[in-house]
Amino acid sequence: MNGRAYCLGIHAKSLRAAGESNSRIDQSGGWQVSDQYTEKERAALAWDRCRDQHHHLRHTR
């Protein structure tokens, strides 16, 4: 997750519809330090954030 409030809001609705717990959704903005996410999930989220930042940098030059 990229941490942008707009994106968190959009995805929260679909996550709730898919059965994700409110606790995990509420802490999604702080996934790096939340005990609601496993080490494997945090690694995947970190990779995705890196990919997102790289994409953003490539398209803002």
Results as ranks from 00 to 15, higher is better:
1 M>Q: 08
2 N>M: 05
2 N>D: 12
3 G>K: 03
3 G>A: 07
3 G>C: 08
3 G>R: 11
5 A>P: 00
7 C>K: 06
7 C>Q: 11
8 L>N: 08
8 L>F: 06
8 L>E: 07
10 I>C: 09
12 A>G: 14
13 K>E: 08
13 K>I: 07
13 K>Q: 09
14 S>P: 00
17 A>M: 10
19 G>A: 05
19 G>S: 04
20 E>I: 10
21 S>H: 03
21 S>R: 10
22 N>K: 04
22 N>L: 02
22 N>F: 00
23 S>R: 09
25 I>V: 13
26 D>L: 07
27 Q>R: 14
27 Q>K: 15
28 S>R: 15
29 G>P: 01
29 G>I: 03
29 G>D: 01
30 G>Q: 07
32 Q>G: 00
33 V>W: 13
33 V>G: 12
35 D>G: 11
39 E>Y: 01
40 K>G: 04
40 K>C: 02
43 A>M: 09
44 A>W: 06
44 A>I: 03
45 L>T: 07
46 A>W: 02
46 A>F: 06
47 W>F: 09
47 W>R: 14
47 W>M: 08
48 D>G: 08
48 D>C: 10
48 D>I: 07
50 C>A: 13
52 D>E: 10
52 D>T: 12
52 D>C: 12
53 Q>T: 04
53 Q>R: 11
54 H>S: 11
55 H>K: 09
55 H>R: 12
57 L>P: 00
58 R>Y: 05
60 T>E: 13
61 R>S: 07
